[in-house]
Design a protein around this nucleic acid. Structure first.
Length: 211
DNA sequence: GCGACAG
DNA sequence: ATCTTGTCGC
């Protein structure tokens, strides 16, 4: 439907126009049974992968891969325009609809409050959240135990959390995408990290994207 | 002006 | 993101 922008200015405009659509709360009775992991790998071409995990067993119950050309350069703050087109195609190829999208990157923790996770959520209408390996905003290191967290702030505003998913390892940076709240997002991330720093959704999608 | 800057 | 071997630790 909507064409993807090809310039930085157009992309920034798209973010400004879509940002007000973000819903910062979970749908009534939200009780996700599956979660999707989204990731993209780059080689000669890009490979977008989506895996769908059962939240009880963390087993992969569905997956899809799409290959394509990178149509937008990597520009901090405009990450979604590089990865989202292919990721949406992969989501379309799934035989099931996941209850929540777990994105590899930021959601609300973004200069214009519209990172990849927000963009993915708004365009699909699905609840979503972002888990970044690096932060955009400022934070104080959370306590060393798994489950400990501290606020991620940008320009004085709380935009996410630095969440420790394993004892003594670097925290991940969680922010809401769409139809989501921070408590629920962190709860989900902890469910998805029984053993490693990164969510199983991200890990399985990452493996799939590399073949 | 300079550095920092999700993946 | 990607270029890349061995190595330390559970």
């Amino acid at each position: 439907m909507t064409a993807w922008p090809s310039t930085v200015d157009e992309a920034v405009d798209v973010q400004a126009r879509l940002a007000p659509s973000v819903v910062r709360e979970v749908p009534p009775g939200f009780a996700p049974r599956t979660a999707a992991g989204l990731d993209v790998a780059y080689g000669q071409r890009l490979r977008a992968a989506v895996t769908v995990l059962d939240l009880d067993t963390l087993a992969v119950v569905d997956q899809a891969v799409v290959e394509g050309e990178a149509t937008f350069p990597y520009v901090p703050g405009l990450f979604a325009f590089r990865e989202l087109p292919a990721l949406l195609e992969a989501l379309d190829k799934l035989s099931t609809t996941p209850d929540v999208l777990v994105c590899d990157g930021q959601g609300l923790a973004h200069p214009r409050r519209f990172g990849l996770a927000c963009h993915a959520g708004v365009l699909t209408g699905l609840p979503s959240l972002g888990v970044g390996k690096n932060a955009l905003g400022a934070y104080e290191p959370p306590a060393a135990e798994r489950g400990a967290w501290s606020e991620l702030r940008d320009e004085g505003e709380v935009v996410g959390r630095a969440l420790r998913t394993q004892d003594g390892v670097k925290p991940v940076f969680v922010s809401i995408g769409h139809r989501m709240d921070l408590d629920t997002a962190c709860e989900l991330v902890l469910t998805l990290t029984p053993r490693f720093r990164l969510p199983e959704t991200t890990r399985t999608a990452d493996r799939l994207s590399r073949g």
